[in-house]
Design a protein around this nucleic acid. Structure first.
Length: 392
DNA sequence: AAAGAAAGCGCG
DNA sequence: AAAGCGCGCTTTCTTT
């Protein structure tokens, strides 16, 4: 995969670079003129001075950093309606990030073959995942429309297409497997939308009658579990009060009592043995869990909860990649793996064989483990990584 | 000039 | 007091 690399369309990046540059310059001028003083918008400390001293914006509820008030995105969101400068800062930050980290950086890393070749580090992460560097191809933008424009610069050569295969909800499926939680297992067996199903259970309504807010809250807690989230974070994620969030969590664990038991048992195990492990036995040692320092112990407990889930997903993906590689070799199709992004692999495939390769890759990935809960793989194809459409 | 810390933010 | 896991990269600012 490192040797194969992935093709970059430099003209797309060049066009983006000009557009971004112009907009960044405009915003920079406007921000400084509204501020009334010249300053470096890229400097968080200078920006904090402008916002909280010169413009006297309220600091109530604004997080502190080691040096002063934070200007991070969640804090700016709290000030959204307090001053016209805030939305401009937010837009400036998005553009500046995309420009410096991707649009300007990627072309410098393209080799003579017109492609970028990442390095997959196999001995870096605490959970068993790979990491990717120089360039990191595991954090290419996708969540915002502007970001997705950058992803469109990752392309297939003439006559080929990119094929993406990703595990659907793999970490939550593994929570079901690891905890043997009947409600989750049945939900996945039934193939239902897991967040809608969770919302219906917790509020005691039918899935049809679940509101968007209820589903969003259920999604927040379903993800939160995987990370050891508490009522305060859940409250912030959902807009509930802390009390409401606590009640929601209580109700959640009444239904998913096996998950509660599993989380408790995992913490106890971490304390007793000093390590936790994945379904397949990969370990993470957590020495600080016996430090006696509350903050360190709590942090170690959250790592203990997360690692078996994230780590088992990583184990599965590694095994799946070996199966895909083996299958591709003997299949004779003109296709090769290019990228791995934790729960997704991206391949480059001769356009005449997309359907057959898609079927084979999906089968290799879905049948890798044989759990009580099905593993589901979604496959997409496209001429570039930013505009992919479902196969079948 | 190089190295490192801090803040911030892109992804799963 | 803070309390969601796992990464890598860029910029600013300070230290060596």
């Amino acid at each position: 995969m490192e040797n194969a690399g992935i093709k970059i369309d430099t003209e797309t990046l060049a066009r983006l670079s000009k557009n971004f540059e112009k907009k960044i310059e405009e915003l920079d001028k406007k921000i400084q003129s509204i501020a009334g003083v010249a300053f470096n918008v890229n400097s968080p400390s200078q920006l904090a001075d402008v916002l909280f001293t010169a413009l006297k914006l309220p600091t109530k509820g604004i997080k502190k950093t080691k040096t002063g008030f934070s200007t991070a995105a969640p804090e700016l969101d709290k000030l959204w309606d307090a001053h016209e400068i805030i939305p401009m800062l937010s837009e400036y930050r998005e553009l500046a990030k995309l420009q410096s980290t991707y649009v300007e950086a990627l072309p410098k890393l393209i080799t003579k073959d017109g492609r970028v070749h990442t390095t997959y580090n196999q001995t870096v992460t605490a959970t068993g995942r790979l990491s990717s560097s120089e360039p990191n191809l595991q954090n290419i933008p996708v969540k915002t429309e502007l970001g997705r424009e950058i992803r469109k610069a990752f392309v297939a050569p003439r006559g080929k297409v990119l094929l993406s295969a990703d595990y659907s909800q793999i970490e939550l499926r593994l929570v079901a497997v690891l905890s043997r939680d009947a409600a989750f297992i049945n939900a996945f067996k039934d193939g239902s939308d897991i967040h809608t199903r969770t919302a219906a259970e917790v509020w005691g309504v039918t899935e049809k009658n679940v509101t968007k807010q209820q589903r969003a809250a259920a999604k927040a807690i379903n993800f939160g579990i995987i990370y050891g989230m508490g009522p305060r974070s859940l409250a912030r994620a959902t807009g509930f009060s802390v009390d409401e969030a606590q009640q929601f969590i209580d109700r959640y664990f009444e239904i998913h009592h096996s998950v509660r038991d599993y989380l408790d048992a995992t913490k106890l195990k971490a304390h007793a043995q000093g390590f936790v492990e994945t379904y397949f036995g990969r370990r993470r040692y957590l020495p600080e869990i016996e430090s006696g320092v509350q903050a360190l112990v709590s942090a170690a407990e959250r790592m203990a909860i997360n690692m078996p889930v994230q780590g088992t997903a990583a184990d599965i993906m590694k095994m799946a990649m070996l199966r895909v590689d083996g299958w591709l070799s003997k299949s004779g199709f003109d296709a090769r793996m290019l990228l791995q992004v934790h729960d997704e692999i991206v391949l480059e495939v001769d356009e005449n064989f997309v359907g057959q390769v898609a079927l084979g890759v999906r089968e290799m990935m879905e049948s890798v483990a044989g759990f009580e809960v099905p593993l589901v793989v979604d496959v997409e194809e496209g001429k570039n990584w930013g505009e992919m459409e479902r196969v079948e």
